[in-house]
Design a protein around this nucleic acid. Structure first.
Lengths: 186, 186
DNA sequence: CGTTAGTTTGAGAGGACTCAAAGTCTGTGG
DNA sequence: CCACAGACTTTGAGTCCTCTCAAACTAACG
């Protein structure tokens, strides 16, 4: 179980915690192309991706904008909707068949209380989300299309094999045409 | 005491909590132009601004980049350095004489334990930081210089009277020249 | 009253955009 | 197993926004 491996790398997982996790979380299978969360729904679960690839996107000016990808070993959720339990402004969909562990909001709150060591998980997640966002802001502000593409190429080359270029362009904050031209420069 | 007013608007402040806050926090005065946090230092305190205006900035490519302002009634800190207790990558300076309440990291951790209701404060702060950042990312990605300036003009017109245009340009992600031209279009 | 930081104005260059059209891939049904 | 529709990607032409570099102007402070 990949999730438990991840967790064990971050905090000490007692037998009690392990038992609770197995009892209170579900593992689900999602087909490629299926929606995991729709705009307007409340994001009730935090998802841990055992396998597969998902993306989060929203609409701006009528156009789809991909603003994150998450793959096996990472968490996915509409962060804002999940933590504040309000309607989501983003859509989450599976780009590949996925196996996900669903951690309901109420379960996480209960774990925080019963197993204070899990708070660390919450803090790390929040920090990670924030740092990622900040790095993207900096990249958007200071680097051009080619540099952003090159950066993706070194940090996550596999993504280019797994996600359509249109989504990647949108994620990088450029048009598909510009991405194509940048890729041609080799 | 403005800080207590703010706190009372967010959570119920018991006499015990109030007493603890007064005992464990300091109020300091900072002159215009003085540094509150330097790059490389660990951000030990969360600051609540009773009066004044501060900005956070870092260097990119040898140039100063302002990435936030905070005024009376708001919190200031190097969010990342504070929550993870590592060296700051940003510099915080006073743009006006300020009166700040310093809430040390250790005090905040203690309050979380002794007064669980203060966790709400921590959560709201984190959410607020995240949402602000996300909005800025969207603005940077989708709106032009004029729209970003106009937005600032409606959301925080006073800032234009209080901070140098160069800092504001940098905050908006444009050059001082472009800001000047945008402002001229009226 | 002079120095320096801050702001404005001008000219020219370049990156990324839009709109348009041509290829290319992929999966489904015949 | 092949053909075709629809989605995806590439290529081209022209435009516009913001940048850089340079210089003039203004304001503030000692």
């Amino acid at each position: 179980m990949i999730f438990l491996d991840y967790l064990a790398s971050v905090i000490k997982v007692s037998p009690q915690l392990k038992a609770q996790l197995q009892e209170l979380t579900d593992t689900i299978e999602i087909a490629k192309g299926d929606s995991i969360l729709r705009i307007g729904e409340r994001c009730n679960d935090l998802y841990f991706i055992n396998s597969g690839l998902v993306r989060g996107y929203y609409y701006y000016d009528g156009k789809e904008v991909t603003h994150w990808f998450a793959r096996e070993g990472e968490f996915a959720s509409c962060f804002f909707s999940f933590i504040s339990q309000v309607a989501s402004v983003e859509h989450i969909e599976a780009l590949e068949p996925c196996e996900l562990i669903c951690i309901p909001y109420a379960v996480l709150q209960k774990l925080y209380i019963d197993f204070p060591e899990t708070e660390r998980l919450g803090r790390l997640l929040t920090e990670a989300y924030y740092i990622k966002l900040e790095n993207r802001l900096l990249a958007l502000k200071f680097t051009d299309a080619k540099a952003r593409y090159d950066n993706l190429l070194t940090t996550n080359p596999a993504l280019l094999q797994r996600a359509p270029l249109g989504h990647i362009a949108s994620y990088l904050g450029i048009t598909p045409e510009t991405l194509s031209r940048v890729r041609g420069k080799y």
